[in-house]
Every structure is written in structure tokens, then in C-alpha cells.
Design a protein around this nucleic acid. Structure first.
Length: 614
DNA sequence: GCCGGAAGGACCC
DNA sequence: GCCCAGGGTCCTTCCCTC
């Protein structure tokens, strides 16, 4: 299902000078089928219900910043263009044409990709199990947030990612939003992920028969390459996909929609064309692909959200992919040097990464790169209460790390907070040795259970010790959300696939990918076994020191005078003091496996001894 | 000028 | 009266060091 924390964009709400271009009051995505309400009325309704909330105030501030930035760039573009001579413009246009031609060379029409998307998945599963709900407006989620709504609810203007309390009122008062539906009560169902996972597994068994290497992007969405299957069985893509969808429906009782195209991006967009319970194909010719792309609003491109859509509109005056292609030179100027530039250039041609992937670019399972847990709660400022919440989160993350395959240990831990004003902060700490579990964790014999509990408690405590000072830095504060994240895992290669983001999926994987920590997902960059970190100056956190110690040291960037040559001291002190991030260096580090403190210069050897046989 | 880490944020489901 | 999630990935920007 296409939910989203950020609401999809809509035209600026009518009659509202104070409403921003970006902020979405309609609750209706252009991408959603089955709507029965009037856009404008829904917009006004939602706006009236939420205009005084801190959420909206915060959102409007963010949007205003975005808007100002886009307008500034637009102005600079105009000035730059006014200064360009005819000859310069012409030469630029030629260059762009050459670039587009070069991109064309990557066009691969030989493969048949398919994207399958379950229709209103969570709601469909619940209604299947409780057929009396079929005719009622149903939302999966709660008063806070809705994750899926059935098509009846959508006739009332209800949709995913809409706050539940607003949805309730819309269903009670359909006339207010121009819906002809009779007033009703929205039925809320608490999500049952175990059940949805079970159904997803059933669908995946079927998908696997059409492509053993298919990619599951989420519980309700899968990407298949049907090329080999079609060749082997001598059937058309249309027929194969129809059969596959029939089998999914027969097996699970739930319908799905599908898109067929020469690459994943086109297939993905096409999967939305005939929702629900339909399928759509873009034929594998350049003309068909371009014709399909040309009529699309840029917002339909996976990876183009409301912010980018607005930027494109303000900076380039462009709405559709056809216009985008025609404005390639300006796209280049506006987004020069950014990945967004090449993304847009390729996307408007209907090209996606699978055509540009490196040879042998097998996708395979994508390693998880971070693990986190966050909770929203009634805004709280009591330190003891917040500490308790932090401890709970550390415990949860610790348990999740333990339950991962293999068990995880990460070198970066982070605290996320959201103030009651909706201001979000992320503070992360880099460790020289990972915190977490040995890969052998859980392989113990009979006494394994007790050991597991001890280990989980130890990791919980380590996370808490690291993050508690970070939380205290924010006191006094009024928080509505807290989250704990662990990343930079010891071994990413072996971690199980947890799905991946579309933008990276559709964007380049090869030469354009940045080299750096965040781009280290390629097979060649994956860590193998325990990391062998260089001891980075002032980058060591000692898990054994008391919280009080930690706080003191984090205020005054510490220096181990006894471990430094005299001449270096002043320079090091200055350098450390200038760092924004507060880091801690102590003598010795605490082994994340056995908990024993060892001297720094022996840390690697010591820890490797635990994992040496990997 | 390039690199890399930290922080913020866009985007996806 | 209730009052805008949570789990991810990646990109951009800023700042620092080499």
C-alpha cells in the first residue's frame, strides 16, 4: 500500500492564503484509486480540523523553508539564463541532446519485469476473515494513524497515512466532504502483522514459481523478472501475470494488481494503472515507453515526493514527464551535481537502474543496514519517565538484535527525539568496537536460554549507558517520541533482506554510486566478520564508565595526557575541543562480546579472538 | 578540493 | 474528548581534516 509519513502533494488548497503549497490537506493522493470525495472539500475539512495543531504549525514552517529555497534557486536560474548568449544556449542544448542519446544506449527492452501489489492489503486480509466488514468503512490502525483503508472508507475520503481522528469525522459527516455516502462509523482494526506476514508468505510461494529471484519490497509488494519464465513456457506476459494473479486470489482470497514493463520503474508505475484487481502492460518498445511516461505527472515517478515535485514545479515550471524531458537543460542546471539530476534525466526517458546495472548485477538479498525502534507517546518532560522509556527502547532494540540472523552488533548507536513541537533530533555515537551480540550468540546448548537473557540484558545496559547522556543533554525537554537505532553492523552481508527503498532500487547502482559509508552496500564493500577499525582519535566510548563520568567527559573533550607525547597535547586539545560532536576517549575499551575491558592496542586482537573463526 | 562523519530530511511501504 | 506511526534507505548539507 502506498502510505507515507509525508502526505502526497496536491494543488495549493483553495482560498487559503496561509496554507502552503506543500502541505497537504486533502488526504487524497493522486496515486490512489477509489476516491469518492471532493478534493477541495476534503482539503478544507482536514485543514479546519488540524489548523491549530502543533503538527500543522511545524509542517507549515518546514514547507515555507522548502518553498523559499526553491524560489531562490528559481531566481538564480532566471538570472543565469538571462546572462547566457544564444550561442551558449545552443551549445548547451546540443550537449544535453548528446547526453540523452547516450542514455538511450542503455535502454534495454529485452526483459519483462512485473510489479505485483496486493490491493489494500491489511484491510483485505481482515475483511477476508470477517466478511461482514466488507460493506463498511474499515481502517487498519487507530485514532493516531491509519495504515490502510478499504475502498468503502476511501469513498469517504479516508486513506492511508491519515490521522484516525480526522477520518472518524469524515465518515460521520460525509456531506462535509462532498461524498454521497450515508453517515457511518469508521471501523478500526488493530494491525495483526503476524497474520499479514503469513498471507505474504503464501503469495511469495507463488511469485517464486515465476521468478525464483523475485524481490519482496514489503509484505504487499513484489518485483519479478519474468523474462526467463516467459521464454521457458512460451506464454505472453499478459497471460502469465493474469494466471499468477488468479493463483494468488485462489490461494489467499485476496486480489492484487500488477504492472508489466521492460524495467522495474515502468512496471511499478504501470501496476497502479488498473487498481484494484487489474493489470496493465507497457509494451517493450521505445515509443510505447515514452508515450506512457510522457503523460505522467512527475509525482508518479517513484522517488519523486511532494518536495521534489514542488521544486520541479517552482524551479522549472514543469508538471509532466514530457515537459521534464523537454526541459532537460534546465533540469541539469537546477540540479547540477546532484543525484537527483541523473535520476530525473533517466526517469523521464523511462529508464531505470536495472538497465544500467553493472554486468552480473545480481540483486539478491539486501542486507539490513540499521535496526531501530521508536515510540510516540503523550508528550512528557519528566526525566525519570523519559529515562524509563529510553530503557524500554534499548531493551527492545537489544532483543531485536538478538533475534536477527545472524545476531547483530553495530558500531553506531543513535537517539532520536521528537519534541512536542514536532522538531526532530538525531544524535549518533560512533564506537570503535560494535555493541551487540556475537555471531555465535544463540547457538548455545541447553543453558542457552539463561545466557541469552544475560546477554540481552548486557546489550540493553550498554545501549542505555551510551544514550542516557545523550538524552540528558536535551533536558529540560518536552518529548512526544523517542527512538533508538543501531547501524554500521559488524557483518552486513549475512543479514537477511528486510526490503529496500525504491529510490535506490530505481536509481543507479554502478558508476554513479558514491563511494562512502552509506554506499557500502555493494558486495565488495561489505564487512566480513568483525571490523578491524583503526583507532580513531577521540572516537572511543567506554561502556564501563559510570554515567556521571560520561557526562563529565562529554562536556570537556577528554585527553589522556599520559598517553600522548607532550608536544602534541595542545594541538590535540584544540582539535578535540573544536569538534561539534562530543566524543570520549578513555584508556581501554570494553569488549562487546565478553564485557572485559582490554587495552586499546589489544582490542582488535581480543575481539577478533571471539570471532576469529568466522 | 576532497573525504568522511554527523545531522536533517525526503521518500517508501 | 480523543488530536498526525514506525521501520527502513538514501540523499543533501554542513563541517572538519588532510
Amino acid at each position: 500500500m502506498a502510505t507515507g509519513s509525508s502526505a502526497p502533494s496536491a494543488p495549493a488548497p483553495p482560498g487559503s492564503g496561509e496554507k502552503s503549497h506543500l502541505f497537504n490537506f486533502t488526504g487524497i493522493s493522486a496515486n490512489k484509486a477509489g476516491m469518492g470525495a471532493d478534493r477541495k472539500l476534503v482539503a478544507d475539512f482536514v485543514y479546519e480540523k488540524s489548523k491549530n495543531s502543533q503538527y500543522t504549525q511545524h509542517q507549515l514552517e518546514l514547507d515555507a523553508k522548502q518553498q523559499a529555497r526553491a524560489e531562490l534557486v528559481a531566481k538564480e536560474l532566471r538570472i543565469a539564463e538571462a546572462r547566457m548568449s544564444e550561442i551558449e544556449l545552443l551549445s548547451e542544448r546540443r550537449k544535453i541532446e548528446a547526453e540523452l542519446e547516450a542514455l538511450e544506449k542503455h535502454r534495454d527492452l529485452s526483459r519483462t519485469h512485473c510489479v505485483v501489489d496486493m490491493d489494500m492489503f491489511y484491510a483485505a486480509v481482515e475483511i477476508r476473515d470477517q466478511p461482514s466488514l466488507a460493506s463498511k468503512p474499515v481502517a487498519i490502525g487507530g485514532l493516531g494513524m491509519i495504515s490502510t483503508a478499504n475502498y468503502v472508507a476511501r469513498l469517504y475520503g479516508v486513506r492511508a497515512a491519515m490521522p484516525g481522528f480526522i477520518a472518524v469525522e469524515m465518515v460521520r459527516n460525509p456531506a462535509a466532504i462532498g461524498s454521497k455516502m450515508p453517515p457511518d462509523e469508521l471501523v478500526f482494526i488493530t494491525p495483526n502483522f503476524a497474520k499479514y506476514t503469513q498471507v505474504a508468505m503464501e503469495t511469495r510461494e507463488i511469485f517464486r514459481q515465476y521468478d525464483p529471484h523475485f524481490r519482496a519490497m514489503s509484505l504487499d509488494e513484489a518485483y519479478l523478472d519474468l523474462t526467463d519464465y516467459l521464454a521457458a513456457h512460451g506464454v505472453s506476459a499478459e497471460a502469465a501475470v493474469q494466471e499468477m494473479r488468479d493463483r494468488v486470489k485462489a490461494r489467499t482470497g485476496i486480489t492484487c494488481s500488477a504492472g508489466i514493463g521492460p524495467n522495474r520503474m515502468v512496471a511499478k508505475i504501470a501496476s497502479d494503472e488498473r487498481k484494484p484487481d487489474g493489470q496493465s502492460q507497457v509494451l517493450p518498445t521505445r515509443e510505447a515507453v515514452l508515450e506512457f511516461m510522457d503523460r505522467l505527472p512527475v509525482r508518479k515517478l517513484p522517488g519523486c515526493g511532494k518536495v521534489l515535485e514542488n521544486q520541479i514545479s517552482i524551479m522549472l515550471g514543469v508538471q509532466t514527464c514530457a515537459e521534464l524531458r523537454a526541459a532537460a537543460a534546465r533540469v541539469k542546471r537546477a540540479f547540477q551535481g546532484r543525484k537527483t539530476c541523473s535520476f530525473l534525466m533517466r526517469a523521464c526517458l523511462g529508464l531505470s537502474s536495472d538497465e544500467l546495472a553493472e554486468e552480473g548485477g545480481e540483486v539478491g538479498n539486501v542486507a539490513r543496514k540499521s535496526l531501530s525502534c521508536e515510540r510516540t507517546f503523550r508528550a512528557e518532560s519528566e526525566p525519570a519517565e523519559l529515562r524509563g522509556r529510553l530503557r524500554d527502547l534499548c531493551r527492545q532494540v537489544s532483543e531485536d538484535m538478538a533475534a536477527s540472523v545472524p545476531p547483530l552488533a553495530g558500531r553506531v548507536v543513535a537517539l532520536k527525539t521528537k519534541a512536542s513541537s514536532f522538531e526532530v533530533r538525531n544524535k549518533q555515537i560512533s564506537l570503535i568496537q560494535p555493541v551487540g551480540f556475537s555471531p555465535n550468540f544463540g547457538k548455545g546448548g541447553e543453558d542457552g536460554r539463561e545466557h541469552a537473557e544475560q546477554e540481552t540484558a548486557r546489550v540493553t545496559q550498554e545501549l542505555y549507558k551510551l544514550l542516557e547522556p545523550v538524552l540528558e543533554e536535551q533536558f529540560p525537554c518536552h518529548l512526544r517520541l523517542m527512538g533508538v537505532r543501531v547501524s554500521s553492523f559488524r557483518d552486513q552481508r549475512a543479514t537477511l533482506d528486510k526490503g529496500q527503498q525504491l529510490i535506490s532500487f530505481f536509481q543507479s547502482k554502478g558508476s554513479e554510486q558514491q563511494e562512502g559509508p552509506s554506499a557500502g552496500a555493494g558486495p565488495d564493500n561489505l564487512n566480513t566478520g568483525m571490523p578491524k577499525p583503526q583507532i580513531q582519535e577521540a572516537n572511543v566510548i567506554d561502556l564501563d564508565s559510570s554515567q556521571e563520568d560520561q557526562r563529565d567527559k562529554s562536556r570537556d573533550p577528554p585527553v589522556q595526557s599520559q598517553s600522548l607525547p607532550k608536544g602534541c597535547l595542545k594541538r590535540v586539545v584544540e582539535r578535540l575541543a573544536s569538534r561539534r560532536a562530543k566524543r570520549i576517549r578513555l584508556s581501554g575499551v570494553c569488549c562487546p562480546v565478553c564485557g572485559v575491558r582490554v587495552p586499546e592496542d589489544q582490542a582488535n586482537r581480543h575481539v577478533n579472538a571471539h570471532y576469529g573463526d568466522q
